[in-house]
């Protein structure tokens, strides 16, 4: 059961990573990078590392995304490529 769950999470994480790199809109890219961090934190719980999971959930998917969004707000309209 646990390996199946881990496989599903890894697939979600990789799809989120591809979306973060390849999607046209920068906003969706940033949100997908946050999704990658969130799934990574669940993977850490399965790999018996609750400390790392808490850090990743608070920092990777919370604060890092907020910092990206603050910078994106300053760079309006120029989000092609």
């Amino acid at each position: 059961m646990l390996p199946v769950l881990l496989t599903i999470l890894v697939i979600i994480m990789l799809l989120g990573g591809l979306l973060a790199v390849e999607h046209k809109s920068l906003l969706i890219g940033v949100i997908s990078a946050g999704l990658v961090s969130l799934t990574a934190s669940i993977i850490y719980v399965i790999l018996a590392a609750p400390d790392v999971a808490m850090t990743e959930a608070a920092i990777g998917s919370g604060l890092s995304t907020v910092m990206f969004l603050y910078v994106l707000r300053r760079i309006k309209g120029d989000s092609n490529a």
């Binding site: 990573g17 973060a20 920068l26 890219g29 990078a33 990658v36 961090s37 910078v71 994106l72 490529a81």
Partner: peptide
């Protein structure tokens, strides 16, 4: 990628 923000997103994915 050519956009610098996109490169930084790539860096953070590498990190994770």
């Amino acid at each position: 990628k050519k956009n610098i923000i996109r490169i930084i997103i790539g860096f953070s994915l590498f990190d994770t």
